[in-house]
C-alpha cells in the first residue's frame, strides 16, 4: 500500500497527514485526526451521516478518498460553532427540537449550513430537497425543517 502526504485545512487549521491510498476522507477525519463528530452510517454514500464541506460543497466523506483532498479546505461539525457561540443552525436545532439521537445530526447540520450559505431564504421545498441525501430515523424531518427555517430567520 502506498502512502501519501496530504495538506488540508480543517475547520481553519492547517493539517499535514500521511494516509494510505485506500483511506476515505471520512476515515481520515475520524481515525487520524479524531474529528469523530463526522459519523459513519453506511460507508456507501447512501445515508449522509458523514457529510462535510469540501471547498464549501457538501460531500459524503465516505465517498471521497483522502488523497483527493490535498490542498482543500474542509469543514466538519466541530467547525461550525465559533468561540463559545453556536452557529444559527445549531441554535435553531435546540430551539425547534431538531435533534433526537443525534447520529445523523452532524450531516444534517452541514447540509443545512451549506444550503443557507447559497440560499439564505430557502422555501420549504428547497429545504427538503437540500436534505434529501441525509437520512434520519428519529425525527421524521419535521423539526429539522422547522430548524432550518428558524436559522434562516436568525442569520
Amino acid at each position: 500500500m502506498a502512502f501519501h502526504k496530504v495538506n488540508v485545512t480543517i475547520n481553519g487549521e492547517m493539517e499535514q497527514v500521511v494516509v494510505p491510498s485506500n483511506m476515505t476522507l471520512m476515515r481520515m477525519l475520524r481515525e487520524i485526526l479524531a474529528f469523530t463528530g463526522t459519523k459513519n452510517g453506511c460507508s456507501a454514500g447512501e445515508c449522509g451521516a458523514c457529510t462535510v464541506l469540501l471547498n464549501g460543497e457538501p460531500v459524503n466523506s465516505c465517498m471521497v478518498l483522502a488523497v483527493e483532498c490535498d490542498g482543500t479546505e474542509i469543514i466538519t461539525v466541530e467547525g461550525l460553532a465559533g468561540d463559545k457561540q453556536l452557529d444559527p443552525i445549531q441554535e435553531a436545532m435546540i430551539q425547534e427540537g431538531g435533534v433526537q439521537c443525534g447520529f445523523c445530526t452532524p450531516g444534517i447540520l452541514i447540509s443545512s449550513y451549506a444550503l443557507l450559505k447559497r440560499n439564505p431564504n430557502p422555501s420549504e421545498d428547497e429545504i427538503r430537497e437540500a436534505l434529501v441525501g441525509n437520512l434520519c430515523r428519529c425525527t421524521g424531518y419535521v423539526r429539522i425543517i422547522e430548524s432550518v427555517k428558524e436559522a434562516a430567520k436568525r442569520s
Binding site: 461550525l80 435533534v99 447540520l109
Partner: peptide, 21 residues
C-alpha cells in the same frame, strides 16, 4: 423545555461507541 443534551450532539462532542479509541 429545551434539551440538556443538545449542545454536545450539535458540536460533535457526544461519545458514540464508534468514537471510543
Amino acid at each position: 423545555v429545551k434539551r440538556n443534551e443538545d449542545p454536545r450532539l450539535l458540536t460533535g462532542q457526544a461519545l458514540f461507541v464508534d468514537d471510543v479509541e
